[in-house]
Write a protein that binds this DNA or RNA. Structure first.
Length: 944
RNA sequence: GCUCGGAUGGUGGAAUCGGUAGACACGAGGGACUUAAAAUCCCUUGGCUAUUGCAGCUGUGCGGGUUCAAGUCCCGCUCCGAGUACCA
C-alpha cells in the first residue's frame, strides 16, 4: 500500500480537533512544562519556509516532553499591532483591523497544515480588547508605582506621598528623573498640579520631556532599539533628535536587576553579552568642578579617577543646561553659532561624518585636586544623555579627548610611566602612575605616583569621598523606554488630562477600546491620528470617566491621543497564555502558580535588545506587584537561525534574448538575472516553464550544455524580489507536513543560519517511505507481527532510543534524524516486523513526524493517541558488543586493528598483542615498557 | 575600533572528554528491473598515485607549537558573519 500523506494528514488534523488532543489545563498531579515561541507579527506576505523553523523545533520538544509525562503548555498567538498594517491603511484606506484579520487567517491556515501541537483554545491577539485590557492595566500599575532603591522593588506611589507629607525628600532613596529636595511643609503647600508634577519625577510610568528619536516620515517617535544606523528599523527613514513630552517607562530603575538576572537564566553567552552591553554598567566617580570666579558648580562622571592630574580641559554636551551659564559674553556669538550647527545635524550625519568640532565657552573650571584653572569647551562628542553630560578631558589617556586636543592645540599631559603619547593616546588601564601630582604642582594632599592604575582609581575614590568632592557612582547606558507613539494602530492609553496633568481612567472601565477614525494620518493641528476620533472621545472616555470617577459632568476632559509602542503588547503575553480568558485579572494566582514561567523560549536574536529586555523588565515589575511569581520570564532560550534563500540565476547575453548555461557563460558578455527557484530543479532550468514565466521570455533562446540549462546560484535573503521564496504550503502539498518538518530539522542545527535548498528534501521523503515499507508491503499486506525481537533488532532500536533521547535534550535534531535513517535501514535489512520494536520506533518518531506516527500507531492496535504514549527507555545490555576492535599502535607508529573481548584490561591486551602473529614479528627483540589504553578503543604500546 | 561567533568534499552538514576525519543526506557517475519513464534496489564517490590483490601519499582557512595522538588545546595571522559604537 502506498504512503498517502494527504489522506493521513487530513484525517489526523480532524481527529486532533475533535478530540481536543492538545488542549491542556492545570493538573497538580503532573509536572508542568511551558514551551513558547515568540509570537509572529502577521504580515501580508504570509509564511515562507523559514518562519516555521523555530515552531517546528519547539513543537518537537513539546511533544517529547509530553511523551515523558509532562503536562505541556504550548500556546500560539499574534503580535497584531504594528506599522505595516497602518502604513497599508494610510495608502489604501483599508482599516488595519481588516488587514490584520485577513493576515491572521492566512497564517492560521498555513500553520494548521504543519501539524503543531498548539493549544489554540488559548490563542491571544494583542489587538483584542480582552487582551490589551491587561496591557493597559499593567501600564496603570506602573503609573501608580515608584521604585524604592532600598528594598529594590516597585512600591505603591501612595507610600511615597505619605513619606513626602511627613518628611519631604529627607532620607529618600528612590529611582527618579532628577534629584529633588523639598521639605514636608513645602510638599504640603504645593497645589495638586504641583504635587502631580513632582510625582512624575518618581512614577515608573511617567510623562517626561526627553530627547527622542523622531522619525518625520513615520510621524512618530521610536525607541532606541527601533533605530538602526540612524534610520528607522521599519522603512529605513531618517531619524532626528527632538525634545518632546512623552510617556516613558523607568526601565533604568531595574538596570541592576536586569543585569543580575542574567546569571540565573539559561541563555546563550552571546545573547547575555549583548544584553550586558546594552545595559552598560560602568562603575566610576562623580566629581564636582567649580567655575572660576563664580558660584557655579558642575559634576562630571569618570571611570578614570586616577587621571585627575592630567585633566587639561573640560567638555560639555551642546544640549547641557549649563551651556548658557558658562558661556561668557565674549564667546556668546560663537557658541550660539556652534549650537545651531550641531542641532541641524541628524544623528546619521554625526555617525557618517565624525569630524572634530567644538567651541570654547570662555569659562574656566578649577581642578579640585590641583587648583588649576582649565578651559571649558562645548562639543558634540560629549553626549547629553549619558552620565552628567559633562566630562573632564584627559587627552593623554582617552582617544576622543586626544583627537580634540590635537585639533584645538590643547595640552596633552601623560600620567603613566613609559607611555608614548606623541602619536596616539594611551587608553589601556594599566601601568604605573607618574606626574600625579607633577613636581611643583599644588596638590590637596593626594599622591598617586608609583601606584598602579587600579590602585590609583581606588585611592582617588576614597579621597573624593573623604573630602566631599563628589561620590562613587554606578552609571548605566540603559535608558528609560519611550512609551508613546504618534500612531493609530496600537493600544490606546487609559488616560485623560485634567489641568494639563494625566490621570488614569478607573480600572473598572478597562479596557479602553481603540476608537474608529476615518483617517490614519495626523490631524491638521498636528495631533496623532486618534485626534480624528472626536465622537469617541466624547462618547467613550468622558462617559466612562465621568460616570465612574464621579467628576463634574460639565467638564470636558481631553484624552491621551498617543498609543503604546509595539513592545507593550508583547511584554507580558506569556503570562496571559496561562489564563487567557480571565476577565478579572491578567492571570489568576492559581494558573500562574502552576505554570510559573516559560521553561523553553524559542525565537530569533533580533529581539535581544528590544522585546527580551522590555519583557524582563515588565515581568520584574509584575513580580514586585506579586502578580508574577517568577522574577525571570524565560528560563531557557534558544535562538533559531535564519533560513536564507538560495537564489538561482540565468545568464542573458547582452542585448539579446539568448540565455547561456552556467558552464559556458564566461565565453560571452552576460547579465545574470534572478529566476524563480520554483521553475528550477537541481539547478537545471525548466526551459518551457521559463518561457511561460514572463511574456518577454516567450521566444527566448538557449545555449545548453549536455542538453540542459544549468543555473547559477547564490545565498541571499529570502524575499520576493530575489524570486527565491519557497512557500511551506507547496512543500506540504508535494511531500506532506511530516517530510517538511523533518527536512527543516535535517537541514542543520536549529541555532544556525542556513540557506533553504529544496533539492535535499527527497532524502527525507524517501526515509518516510522506507519507514512505511516496514509496515506495509507493496501489495498492501500489513507486516507487523507479535514475536520476540532478535538481538540485532533490539540493538538497533536501543541505539536509536539512546541517541534520540540525548539529541532532543541538546536540540541536535539533525543528527537524530540521521540516526532514524540508519535505524530504519537496519530494520529493513533485518526484515524486522516485531510490533514491540516498531512501537518504540513510532513513539520516538512522533515528535518529529506526528501524522504518520499517529496513523501507524493506530494500525499497530493502540487505541490512544501516540501523544499519550510513553517515551521508551534504553537498556545498555542490548548495546554491548562481544568483542571490540582496538587499534593498537607501537610507539605511536605501526598500527594494527585487533579484536579483543569487550571487557579487556591492560593485562589481557598485553598478552594478546604479544600473542598475535603480526605484532609478534614487529616486537621481536624488543621489550614492552608500558601499555596505555585510552578511550575509544585505542591501545598504545611503548617499546624499547 | 571593541565584543562574541565561525571557516571541514561539488552541496547541507557529522565527529560527546584531544583518539587517528568526512556519519547521514543531496548531487554526480555506473549498474539492475522496465518497451520506456517514474518508482525501487545495488555499487563508486575528499584529492593524488596504484588498481584483476593488497596499498601508498596527502588532506579540516594560513603559519608555528604542545602531545604517543590535534578539525578539537596554545601562540601569531587571513577571511566571513553577528552585535555594538563618540558611554568618558
Amino acid at each position: 500500500m502506498e504512503y498517502n500523506f494527504r489522506e493521513i494528514e487530513k484525517k489526523w488534523h480532524q481527529k486532533w480537533v475533535e478530540n481536543k488532543t492538545y488542549q491542556v489545563s492545570e493538573d497538580d498531579s503532573r509536572k508542568k512544562f511551558y514551551v513558547l515561541n515568540m509570537f509572529p507579527y502577521p504580515s501580508g506576505a504570509g509564511l515562507h519556509v523559514g518562519h516555521p523553523l523555530g515552531y517546528i523545533a519547539s513543537d518537537i520538544y513539546a511533544r517529547y516532553k509530553r511523551l515523558q509525562g509532562y503536562n505541556v503548555l504550548n500556546p500560539m498567538g499574534y503580535d497584531a499591532y504594528g506599522l505595516p498594517a497602518e502604513q497599508y491603511a494610510i495608502q489604501t484606506g483599508q482599516h488595519p483591523a481588516i488587514t490584520t484579520v485577513n493576515n491572521i487567517n492566512r497564517y492560521r491556515e498555513q500553520l494548521d497544515k504543519i501539524g503543531f501541537s498548539f493549544d489554540w483554545s488559548r490563542e491571544i491577539c494583542t489587538c483584542d480588547p480582552q487582551y490589551y485590557h491587561w496591557t493597559q492595566w499593567a501600564f496603570q500599575q506602573m503609573f501608580k508605582s515608584y521604585y524604592c532603591n532600598r528594598v529594590k522593588k516597585a512600591r505603591p506611589i501612595s507610600e511615597l506621598v505619605k513619606a513626602f507629607e511627613t518628611n519631604g525628600t529627607e532620607g529618600l532613596d528612590v529611582a527618579c528623573s532628577e534629584e529633588l529636595k523639598f521639605t514636608a511643609a513645602e510638599w504640603n503647600a504645593m497645589s495638586e498640579k504641583q504635587q502631580q508634577e513632582t510625582l512624575m519625577n518618581y512614577r515608573i510610568a511617567y510623562v517626561g520631556e526627553t530627547m527622542v528619536n523622531w522619525c518625520p516620515k513615520l510621524g512618530t517617535v521610536l525607541a532606541n532599539d527601533e533605530v538602526v544606523d540612524g534610520v528607522s528599523e521599519r522603512g529605513g527613514y531618517p531619524v532626528v533628535q527632538k525634545k518632546m513630552k512623552q510617556w516613558c517607562l523607568r526601565v533604568s530603575a531595574y538596570a541592576q536587576r536586569l543585569l543580575d538576572g542574567l546569571d540565573t537564566i539559561d541563555w546563550t553567552d552571546s545573547l547575555k553579552e549583548t544584553q550586558r552591553n546594552w545595559i552598560g554598567r560602568s562603575e566610576g566617580t562623580e566629581v564636582r568642578f567649580k567655575i572660576k570666579d563664580s558660584d557655579v558648580e558642575f559634576t562630571i562622571f569618570t571611570t578614570r579617577a586616577d587621571t585627575m592630574f592630567g585633566v587639561t580641559f573640560m567638555v560639555l554636551a551642546p544640549e547641557s543646561e549649563l551651556v548658557p551659564t558658562v558661556t561668557t559674553e565674549a564667546q556668546k556669538a560663537e557658541v550660539e553659532a556652534y549650537l545651531d550647527a550641531t542641532k541641524k545635524r541628524t544623528e546619521r550625519e554625526r555617525i557618517a561624518d565624525r569630524r572634530v568640532t567644538g567651541v570654547f565657552s570662555g569659562s574656566y573650571a578649577i581642578n579640585p585636586m590641583t587648583g588649576e584653572a582649565i578651559p571649558v569647551w562645548i562639543s558634540d562628542y560629549v553626549l547629553a544623555g549619558y552620565g552628567t553630560g559633562a566630562i573632564m578631558a584627559v587627552p593623554a589617556h582617552d582617544s576622543r579627548d586626544y583627537a580634540f586636543a590635537k585639533h584645538f592645540n590643547l595640552e596633552i599631559r601623560p600620567l603613566i610611566e613609559g607611555c608614548d603619547v606623541s602619536e596616539e593616546s594611551f587608553d589601556a588601564k594599566e601601568g604605573i602612575m607618574i606626574n600625579s601630582p607633577r613636581e611643583g604642582m599644588n596638590s590637596c594632599g593626594l599622591v598617586l605616583n608609583g601606584l598602579t592604575v587600579k590602585e590609583a582609581i581606588a585611592k582617588t575614590k576614597e579621597f573624593v569621598k573623604e573630602h566631599n568632592l563628589g561620590r562613587v557612582k554606578v552609571n548605566f547606558r540603559l535608558r528609560d523606554a519611550i512609551f508613546s507613539r504618534q500612531r493609530y494602530w496600537g493600544e490606546p492609553f487609559p488616560v485623560y488630562y485634567k489641568d494639563g496633568m494625566p490621570y488614569m481612567i478607573d480600572e473598572d472601565c478597562l479596557p479602553l477600546e481603540l476608537p474608529e477614525v476615518d483617517k490614519f494620518l495626523p490631524t491638521e493641528t498636528g495631533e496623532p491620528p486618534l485626534g480624528h476620533a472626536t465622537r469617541w472621545a466624547w462618547d467613550t472616555v468622558n462617559k466612562q470617566v465621568v460616570e465612574n470617577s464621579k467628576i463634574d459632568h460639565q467638564t470636558i476632559f481631553p484624552i491621551e491621543l498617543n498609543t503604546m509602542p509595539g513592545f507593550a503588547g508583547s511584554s507580558a503575553y506569556y503570562l496571559r497564555y496561562m489564563d487567557p480568558h480571565n476577565d478579572k485579572a491578567l492571570v489568576s494566582k492559581q494558573a500562574d502558580g502552576y505554570w510559573q514561567n516559560v521553561d523553553l523560549y524559542v525565537g530569533g536574536t533580533e529581539h535581544a535588545t528590544g522585546h527580551l529586555i522590555y519583557s524582563r523588565f515588565w515581568n520584574k515589575f509584575l513580580f514586585d506587584l506579586g502578580v508574577s511569581i517568577k522574577e525571570e520570564p524565560f528560563q531557557k532560550l534558544v535562538n533559531q537561525g535564519m533560513i536564507q534563500g538560495r537564489s538561482n540565476f540565468v545568464y542573458r547575453i547582452k542585448d539579446t534574448n539568448t540565455f547561456v548555461s552556467l558552464g559556458l557563460k564566461d565565453q560571452y558578455d552576460v547579465t545574470p538575472i534572478h529566476v524563480d527557484v520554483n521553475i528550477v530543479s537541481n539547478d537545471v532550468l525548466d526551459v518551457e516553464a521559463f518561457k511561460n514565466w514572463r511574456p518577454e521570455y516567450n521566444n527566448a533562446e538557449f545555449i545548453l550544455e549536455n542538453d540542459k540549462y544549468i543555473c547559477g546560484w547564490a545565498v541571499e535573503k529570502m524575499s520576493k524580489s530575489m524570486y527565491n521564496v519557497v512557500n511551506p504550503d507547496m512543500i506540504v502539498e508535494k511531500y506532506g507536513a511530516d517530510t517538511l518538518r523533518m527536512y527543516e530539522m535535517f537541514l542543520g542545527p536549529v541555532e544556525q543560519s542556513k540557506p533553504w535548498d529544496t533539492n535535499g528534501i527527497d532524502g527525507v521523503h524517501r526515509f518516510i517511505k522506507k519507514l512505511w515499507a516496514l509496515f506495509y508491503s507493496r501489495q498492501g499486506e500489513f507486516l507487523p507481527s507479535d514475536g520476540k525481537p532478535t538481538k540485532e533488532e533490539l540493538k538497533s532500536i536501543h541505539k536509536l532510543i539512546k541517541k534520540v533521547s540525548t539529541d532532543i535534550e541538546n536540540f541536535s535534531y539533525n543528527t537524530s534524524i540521521s540516526a532514524f535513517m540508519i535505524c530504519v535501514n537496519e530494520l529493513s535489512q533485518l526484515k524486522c516486523n516485531k510490533k514491540t520494536v516498531l512501537s518504540d520506533l513510532i513513539v520516538l518518531l512522533a515528535p518529529f513526524a506526528p501524522h504518520i506516527s499517529e496513523e501507524l500507531w493506530e494500525k499497530l492496535g493502540h487505541d490512544t493517541s501516540v501523544c499519550d504514549a510513553q517515551w521508551p527507555s534504553f537498556n545498555e545490555e542490548y548495546l554491548k558488543e562481544d568483542t571490540v576492535k582496538y587499534t593498537v599502535s607501537f610507539n605511536g607508529k605501526a598500527r594494527f586493528t585487533l579484536d579483543f573481548p569487550a571487557d579487556a584490561d591492560n593485562a589481557t591486551i598485553e598478552k594478546t598483542v604479544i600473542g598475535h602473529e603480526s605484532s609478534q614479528k614487529y616486537l621481536e627483540g624488543k621489550s614492552i615498557k608500558k601499555v596505555i589504553i585510552v578511550p575509544k578503543k585505542i591501545v598504545n604500546i611503548v617499546i624499547g
